Computed example of a mutant assay.
Amino acid sequence: MRAVQIRELGGPEVVIVRELPEPEPGPGQVLIDVARCGVNFADTLMRENGYLAAATLPLVPGLEVVGCTAEGLRLAALIDNGGYAEKAVISGDHAFAVPDGVDDTEAVALLAQGLTAWWLVNHTACVRPGDSVVVHAAAGGVGSLAVQLAKMRGAGRVIATASTPAKRALAMELGADVAVDTAEEDLTTALCAANGGAQVDVVLEMTGGRVTDQSLAALAPFGRLAFYGMASRVEPAMISPRALQGRSASVSGFWLMHAFDRPDVLGKAYSELAAQVAAGELRVVHGGDHPMSEVQRVHAELRGRRTTGKLVIDPSR
């Protein structure tokens, strides 16, 4: 089968399409023909061994797939790796039936990114009716869904941040009340100004460095900052006991891999998200359907933050 394999650590050039043997399913697993595999920022970190989970080479990247079993059952699934391939082995505990009215890109987008957005809004940050919610990288895969889910949860004001006018306009289309340029020198003041001069209740953050620090400074007493990534790879400076106590603030982290131990919750969440997409209540931003032969370019575009929404790869091309 055709698959992408990484044999050495490095940049996009190490992500190479090769001919590999088909994977063999083990107990509780099933083989599927992959229709689309999702591309995530985490994939670009894996090829450098910069992800939370250490990379073991050789590696076929890809954490999410949608496709059909030999019996014709259409499933979307979270996997440890192996998604960038024509065939993949999935576990029944982390596979979800895809309803009619949900296309392949949408089915994949609701996996790592959709479930992360759902968990952040409903559990980690526990968004409450009336809360003001800052969503950083609001045009990205997680952010674009989190903007909408926060609104559905009853957020009083959703403040989106993004790096370009086009991305900020997209966030507004998705339901954000106001959009802020992430490059604002005094991001703390900009976020509070976007909230009518008041400090904010919730921040969903995945950038790191000064963005985290200035977002924490914008939190109201009893505010919550939910940290689910660090795209800048720069550690924030202000997360200290004194800084948190001085604001009665909470800072939490979330990694979807830990939710794998709660397949019942993930199954409920996926079904809920898929039903909202099928009903037209939740919009997945299609970020590009690319042939697997262009995987190096896709990685370069994603790492360069020149993409929006959900990127997928078609293994058949």
Rank of each mutant, 00 (worst) to 15 (best):
G209F: 12
F254P: 01
Q296K: 13
R47M: 13
G67V: 03
V312T: 15
V298C: 13
P241Y: 03
V34E: 07
I16N: 10
H136F: 13
G288Q: 10
H286E: 14
G82E: 08
R297N: 13
V277H: 07
I6D: 02
Y51A: 14
A160Y: 10
D43R: 08
R74T: 03
C126E: 13
D181F: 13
F41H: 05
M172S: 10
A279I: 06
V284G: 05
A194P: 12
D103F: 13
G130W: 04
R303K: 15
Q214K: 11
Q296F: 14
D104V: 09
V200L: 10
R7I: 01
Q29R: 07
F254Y: 12
T212K: 04
L75T: 11
I313K: 01
A77I: 07
L9C: 06
D264W: 09
D213R: 02
V203T: 02
A88R: 05
Q148R: 04
V147H: 01
A139Q: 05
L110D: 02
N195D: 13
Q296D: 07
H258E: 11
R247Y: 10
L59V: 14
S248A: 14
F254Q: 02
K167D: 04
V203Y: 00
A179R: 04
Q245K: 02
V234R: 11
R74E: 07
R153T: 01
E24M: 11
R306M: 08
W255K: 01
L225Q: 00
V285L: 06
H299F: 15
A190C: 09
E71M: 10
L145E: 11
R224Y: 01
N49G: 14
L110T: 05
L266G: 01
G11Y: 11
D181E: 14
G62Y: 02
D186N: 15
H299S: 02
G10T: 08
W255G: 01
T69Y: 09
V265A: 15
A150K: 03
T307Q: 00
V14M: 09
V277A: 06
A226E: 00
A54T: 14
A176C: 04
L282M: 11
L187T: 11
A42N: 05
V211S: 05
A259Q: 10
E173D: 15
G267V: 06
P165F: 12
A112C: 14
K167M: 03
L256K: 01
L302Q: 15
Q5F: 09
V203P: 00
A97W: 00
G287K: 03
G141H: 13
L31T: 09
S215R: 05
M152T: 03
E185M: 08
A117K: 05
D104C: 11
S91P: 01
R317P: 02
R210S: 12
A194C: 12
L244Q: 04
I16V: 15
I16R: 15
S132L: 01
V298S: 11
V211G: 04
N49T: 12
N195H: 12
V102I: 09
E8A: 15
E8G: 09
R224H: 12
V180P: 02
V277T: 10
T56D: 11
L120W: 01
G140N: 07
L244C: 10
G156T: 00
I6S: 06
L219M: 09
